[in-house]
Design a protein around this nucleic acid. Structure first.
Lengths: 167, 167
DNA sequence: ATAAAATAGTTAGCTATTATAACTATAGTC
DNA sequence: GACTATAGTTATAATAGCTAACTATTTTAT
């Protein structure tokens, strides 16, 4: 199984330090997944830093925003909207409920499902957080112009919502 | 602590089903982190599907590509290049070594560091994988034109490498 | 109307990712 | 030679994404 040997004689290898820390021109720079991960890593780091005092993670923030926009949204609907699997939605809503930010209400029509609502403090918090998130994004993308930021959002949306029309 | 109450009377909530599965016009659509995650999720899913028969994960692929481009690269240099923390690089290279795709060679000049090289089978594999990755990206972004794909890569690169110049 | 199939939510378990802290060995500096 | 810094490693921990299995309900088919 391990019949293959090394590609370069290790004896004559002494220039490791010369390697650049940024990989210009490497095939990797053409890989969309790589670029998306690097960009997301940076944007999320800024986000987490901005939310640190509120102890809110990206998925919690997204949930709060969706619940605010669609009060009474069911867990399955939330899962689909955020591309989060059902088990994770459970723990997500649990944490929001424990912190008094949201609550489940059993649905009368279909007693299998639960509508989710924000509490007063949940509503107050999400209003505050939206401003912080906005500022965080701007900081993380200082190197982009406002036009470029719009372009980027449009292109990304086209990937995950293929039916998206240009603005 | 739990003084706040719900935002809507749950008694009159019976329209959950009417909620859209795609959230158009919601504040969330303006959040860069959200869009990045959704897009990355889709691109990575395609990638993992394309690599399934080879049992190669995104981070392993990136590592192979960098090692191929810079044979003898040290683990710390690899960590910095890929924005992966050192402990993870260890397990990453361990797995590549166990599979006979790469190997560590202790550096003579600085005996603390290890140069990483591809084996013959590692070289053969990465050549094969690069084609698969390319096709996977195209499939995942069918809704984008070639120009838009280039724009997207450029914009993303501007975020994580702020010094990047336009093409 | 009853049996079968589908759905909403939940619990449990696995792997991977990101992040720390602490430790060993080596190298560089005062 | 003592102090400091660096490369790699080990060990934890929290989170994320995925799958299977189970309960309670609803819908569909017979």
């Amino acid at each position: 199984m391990t019949t293959s040997k090394r590609t370069s004689p290790p004896e004559q290898t002494a220039l490791e330090e010369a390697y650049p820390t940024t990989v210009e021109g490497l095939v990797l720079e053409e890989r969309l997944g790589y670029a998306l991960r690097r960009a997301q890593l940076k944007v999320f780091k800024h986000f987490n830093e901005a939310m640190r005092e509120h102890d809110i993670r990206p998925a919690q923030f997204s949930s709060l925003v969706v619940i605010e926009g669609y009060p009474g949204v069911t867990q399955s609907s939330l899962a689909q909207t955020l591309s989060i699997d059902p088990p994770r939605v459970v723990s997500l809503i649990n944490s929001l409920e424990e912190r008094g930010l949201a609550l489940r209400v059993r649905c009368k029509r279909d007693r299998r499902s639960h509508g989710i609502f924000l509490t007063k403090s949940g509503e107050a918090l999400v209003e505050r957080l939206k401003g912080l998130a906005e500022r965080s994004d701007l900081e993380a993308t200082q190197s982009l112009s406002e036009i470029e930021r719009r372009q980027l959002l449009t292109l990304l949306r086209k990937i995950y919502v293929p039916e998206t029309q240009d603005d």
